[in-house]
Every structure is written in C-alpha cells, then in structure tokens.
Nucleic acid binder design. Structure first.
Length: 641
RNA sequence: GCCGAUGUAGCUCAGCUGGCCAGAGCUACUGAUUUGUAAUCAGUGGGUCGGGGGUUCGAAUCCCUCCAUCGGCUCCA
C-alpha cells in the first residue's frame, strides 16, 4: 500500500501502482470524467501513469492552468495528425501549449497554408478527436528515436533529439501520429470537444532570425463548445478596448502616410491628455526635487561614440545626416545630453543627488514590423530623468524612484503588472555588456537589496540588463495580450566613466557618480495607449479629453448654455456646447458615445434658477444642482496629486 | 527586417466568377422641426476604388511592383 496526500491535507491509502484516473474514479464518476492530468509530487504526469510510492497528488482539471496546458498540448499533437493527413511529408518543429491555446511550427516544404484551410483542418481534427484515440507514452532509446525521424525525414526533430540524452526521450502516439515529446498528455483525444484555429504566422526555427522561418499555426481548444463561444466573445470585447480603435473613435491621435510610420499626430483630444499626464509628472517631480532641463533633438556622432550607444544601438537609431561633413544623429535617448549638463559646471558632493528631468522627444528606428499603434512608435516622448548620486545615496534614491512608480500606479489603479529585475550575463562581458565585473556585481546587489528591503515582488531575469548596468522594468499587457515594458528604472555606472563625470567629495577628491535612468511613465505614447485600454476610453475626469458637454433642450436655451460654457472655461474645464437643433435624446446619445464624463442638460427650469441638470456618463441622470455647486464638485473630483 | 493576410467616401462596410455614370448606414452641410435624459424628418455634399505599371475592346474586380495597416516571429520604452 502507498499513502497519497491530497491538496487539502487528507491522506488516503491505495494499492501500489494505482493511477490518478483510478483514484478519481474511486471518488466519483463525474470527477473521473474531468481529470485531464495529475500532479504527483509537484510534477505533471498523465493520469494513467501508475504511482509507485507515497506521494502528494493533485487531480488536474480544466480549472487548473496545468490542466489547460495538457489539453492544449495534446491538441497540438491532434492538429499535427490532421496536418499530416493533408500535407504528406510535412516536418514539425516545436508544438507547445501557450497562454491561450497552442501552436505548432511546421515546414510545409514550400506548400502554402492559409486561413482558408482552417475549416478543413478543424473538421479533420474534430473527426480524429471523436475517435477517442489514446495518447500512448513510450520511453525510447536515442538511437531508435533518431532512426524513426531519419526515416521520416524530419530534420527538426533530429536536431532536437541530438540535444537530449538517453533516458529522457519519450514518444507519444495517438491514432496515426507519433511525436517526440516530453508530455504529459490527455488520456485520449475525446476530451477535445471544441476546436478553433486562430491564425497563422511565420516563426524562426528556435527563435533565431538567422534560421529558417517556419509556418506557425495557432489554435485553441476547449472541453466544451460553450467555453469556446465565451472565449470568442471575450476576444470581441477586447477588440472594443483596443487603443487603436478608441483612439480613432474619440479622435485622440492618428497616423498619416505623409508624416511617416510610427509617428503619431496628437489631435486636440489626445493633446489634452498628454498635457494632463505631463502636468502630473512635472508636479510630482518638482516635489521630489527634480530640475527641468531641455536639450536639442540632434547631436553629433562624437557624443554617441563617447556614450557608447553607437556600437550597441546604431541599428535602432535613424541613419545619420551629413552636416558640413559631420555626422549628426537624431537622438534616441536623452542621457548623453544630461551628462553634458552635469559636467557643465564643477559639481560638489553638496550638489548631489542631482536630478535632471526632460520629456524630450526621441526617435528610434524600430523595425517596421514592430510598430503597433501607440505602444510601439518611432517618435516618442520619454518620461525621462537622470539622477546623479554617490554610492551611499544610491539605495535611498533608487527606493524613492520605486516609490514614485507605486504612487503613479495607485493613481491609475494599475494592478496587473510584473517587476522584472534584469541582470547581466558574466559570459557576455565586453560584448553585450561593459567589461566592469566588480561594478556589475556591486550595483546588482544594491538593486536587489532595495527590492527586498522595500518588499516589492519581482522576478529576476538574467542576461536582459542594459549594456551600462542592471535595470528594473515594469511589464504590462495590452488588451490583446501583447506584453510591453511600461516603466523602466536603470542603473548606469558605464556612462559616467565614459563621460568622465566627477564630483568633488568630502575628502576633496574627484569621485564618479552613479546614474539612475528612470521613466516611471515609460513613454507618454505607450502610457496613454495603455491608459486608453485600461479605462476602455472611460477616463477619470481629470484625464478626460472632453470633460463636460452642455446640452440645451432647445435653441432658446443656447444663451444660457453659452453663459455656463464661459463660466466653466474660467475654471479651466474642458467644455463644449452641443449647438445642433437635435432632440435632447440624440444629444445625450452622442455625448454618451463620446464618453464625456458630464452632460449638463439645460432648459427652461435650469435657466430660471441658475441650475444645471447633471447627467453622468454611464450612470445617468444625477438631478439638478446650482452651477456653483457643480463647479465645486468637479474641481474636487478632478484633483489628483 | 521576415512569414501570412488586408487596403472601396471622415467612420463602419457592400460590390471583387471583369461590362449599366461605384453603393448603403452613420458623420458633415442645408432646410423644416424647438424638442426634457441613448438615434425627428427631408434634401445636399463627399470616393485618384492605397500609389505606380501591366493584361484586356473594357478592371475596384486579373497579374506585377511599391507603400501602409493587421496577426505573428525577431527586436524593444
């Protein structure tokens, strides 16, 4: 007998060699039908694998992430089986489960597969799934595995097998399809009830752009049709929040062919949002002791050679322009300019920490295929500042920057994000990273300490640092699930050396400062793109491009409407009047569609008593108040710190 | 940059097995209406059918090419 411990702590005894499936069966028939896989001693295995020793057991269903992954992983194999039926000789790369479904990278040998082929593949998959074919696991020797795929002529699998050792190679077989795979898989294909192929894309073999590009087919499956329907519904909803759509609907920004790719034009509504955001940032930074500086958009090659950017970033910068025989570059970052401002006058330890802020426009030559609405542009305004401090000031300064992040996140109600602490890879010193091993170690330790001491949850990612030092990035997701870095906080010990920045320390000796690059709001483009999706266009009053619209009942109330308009303008409220001789219902409808926070309905009653009837976007009629009271209320509501 | 798809009025879309002067709704403008909390009625305007080449008696519809956008890959704030 063996002892099985369940997640709730219960311990039960079973025959040695019992399977998770049989245990589920012994609990209830209904449960047994839902078990997709099992987690035994922390690792996920097939529910049909015998358990030989005492173990902890979790039965995995669709509700568990590992359950979903198992269903999707098995679905990838099912899709591969269907594909092989239509495209004999097809070769397979990787076919893993992902966050929403699965994909398989395939080499069709020059044949074309388009979304028009999805229907027939889905149908074939459904047909195969209905056969309830079991997924059969087989441990196999390396040589045998190589023979199988050599015979089949699949070089990708052969390459993968070569990276594996004997004893860790398993095959999975279902129906007429055998694949090299680590597993685990479903008991049989019958668990896959609803199938949808999503899209098709090119993907480099092993993610390396020097390798051949394979065809990647994305799909998703569910244990019930209803769940597929709900998922598709969810995608539709997400599309409505897409900042590119809302940006157009609310007239926030556009892109124009004549201006260029990735160069947003901010329309007045978007302009108002940019103003508010920058004003918030300026207030915040003033209070935190920052100084505002300003630098030009272009600079000579010599400066970027000195900063070290050119060797590392040349491909991300616009090609230089020749001015009287000297190369000038559009600036891709503000830091070198700020270093020059630091060194403009002799600095004493009494000047530190010196915090220089600028929202200068930078230009980055992003690959054309990377551009994405406001989230990825070529002309961008960084929420930039550089803090020059001594080593013993570093921790306090770095901590203060993190606190500023958190303050902003609170204002905007940003809860879903991940802090990534990027460190260097010692093997790439001198190549990807500046060759200063002691400084790397020292600064990485300092950053880690700040994170730990501030109790900030983070994940550490090796080999993702900037070339000049470690950094912290805040990752967020666009509404369609794409991941972006929103904010960044970077340590730089490289540029101060290169620019020979020094301050006179207490012992009257020159000392090199550490620089912190920080952009808590990232770029204003990306941040607003994010906010549009975050709020689905229903902005808080202070940020809303149009805050109030006055809706006269009829033309004879226009004078009164104009009077309120000018009163509100004096209060710097962004307000307009709907002059059209439409019915009030129409005016309200249009104002609601424009997501304007407050609608003021004015007719005879209001005009006589100096009142306004307040209607709030999304929540309807709020009743009448005096103009004064309304102004007091919205001023209060629109206050952010 | 790479793979695939798409590109018709300001917006959303129809037309695209080649052939009546290229359509609809919303928007805009004009007129009528003077309206009380999510669409009043009528009229008018508006399109190099992404750009450029080609095939054809004839192309928005077929072919080539360039540009842009979208979905991914690679990169990244």
């Amino acid at each position: 007998m063996i002892e099985i411990t369940f997640p709730d702590g219960a311990v039960r005894q079973y025959e040695k060699g019992i399977t998770a499936q049989e245990i589920a069966q012994s609990i209830s028939e209904g449960l047994a039908k839902k078990i997709l896989a099992a987690k035994v001693n922390g690792s996920v295995i097939e529910s049909s694998r015998p358990i030989e020793n005492d173990a902890t057991l979790k039965l995995l269903t669709w509700e568990d992430p590992e359950g979903k992954a198992t269903l999707w992983h098995s679905s990838a194999h099912l899709m591969a089986e269907a594909l092989e039926a239509f495209y004999p000789g097809i070769k397979f790369g990787y076919g893993p489960p992902v966050e929403n479904g699965f994909y398989y990278d395939v080499d069709l040998g020059g044949r074309l597969l388009t979304s028009e082929d999805f229907k027939k593949i889905e149908t074939k998959m459904a047909e195969l799934a209905a056969k309830n074919n079991p997924y059969i696991r087989r441990e196999i020797l390396k040589e045998e595995a190589l023979n199988y795929f050599t015979e089949k002529g699949d070089g990708y699998k052969i390459e993968t097998i070569h990276e594996l050792k004997d004893g860790e190679i398993t095959f999975y077989e279902q129906g007429n399809f055998t694949d090299l795979c680590r597993g685990p898989h479903l008991p049989h294909t019958g668990f896959i009830k609803a199938i949808k192929l999503m899209n098709i894309a090119g993907a480099y073999w092993k993610g390396d752009e020097n390798n051949k590009q394979l065809t990647r087919i994305y799909g998703i499956t569910f244990p019930r049709q209803k769940e597929l329907d709900e998922y598709l519904q969810l995608l539709e909803e997400a599309k409505k929040r897409d900042h590119r759509k809302i940006g157009k609907d609310l007239e926030l920004f556009i892109f124009d062919d004549d201006v260029g790719q990735g160069m947003p034009l901010w329309l007045p509504n978007g302009g108002a949002m940019i103003e508010e955001l920058e004003s918030l940032a300026k207030r915040t930074e003033e209070r935190a002791g920052y100084h505002r500086v300003k630098s030009p958009h272009i600079a000579k090659e010599s400066m970027y050679l000195k900063s070290g950017h050119l060797p590392f970033y040349a491909e991300s910068m616009f090609p230089p322009m020749d001015v009287d025989g000297t190369k000038y570059y559009l600036k891709a970052m503000n830091c070198p300019h700020h270093h020059k401002i630091f060194s403009a006058v002799p600095r004493s330890y009494k000047d530190l920490p010196l915090r220089l802020a600028e929202y200068g426009t930078c230009y980055r030559y992003e690959q054309s295929g990377e551009l994405f609405g406001l989230m990825r542009v070529r002309a961008l305004n960084m929420n930039d500042a550089h803090i020059y401090c001594s080593e013993d000031q570093f921790e306090a300064e770095f901590r203060a920057v993190n606190e500023m992040y958190l303050k902003y996140f609170k204002i905007f109600g940003i809860e879903k994000y991940v802090m990534r602490f990027s460190t260097h890879d010692p093997e790439k010193l001198g190549k990807k990273y500046l060759d200063l091993p002691e400084l790397w170690k020292k600064t990485e330790d300092m950053v880690r300490n700040v994170l730990i001491n501030s109790d900030i949850p983070y994940v550490e990612v090796p080999d993702e640092a900037a070339f000049y030092g470690p950094k912290i990035d805040v990752q967020i997701w666009s509404v369609i699930g794409r991941e972006f870095t929103l904010a960044t906080n970077q340590v730089d010990f490289g540029q101060p050396l290169r620019f020979e920045l020094t301050f006179q320390n207490k012992n009257n000796e020159p000392e090199t400062p550490i620089v912190i690059h920080r952009a808590p709001l990232g770029t204003h483009e990306r941040f607003i793109g994010f906010l549009i999706e975050h709020y689905a266009g229903n902005f808080p009053l202070w940020l809303a491009p149009r805050q109030v619209i006055i809706l006269p009942i009829s033309d004879r109330h226009l004078d009164y409407a104009e009077k309120i308009l000018s009163m509100l303008r004096q209060e710097r409220v962004r307000v307009e009047v709907d002059h059209r001789s439409e019915k009030i219902g129409k005016k309200i409808r249009d104002a609601e569609i424009k997501k304007i926070p407050y609608m003021l309905v004015v007719g005879d009653k209001e005009a006589q008593e100096e009142m306004v009837s307040v209607r709030k976007h999304g929540s309807g009629d709020q009743g009448q108040v005096s103009i004064r009271e309304f102004i007091t209320n919205i001023n209060k509501e629109a206050t952010v710190n």
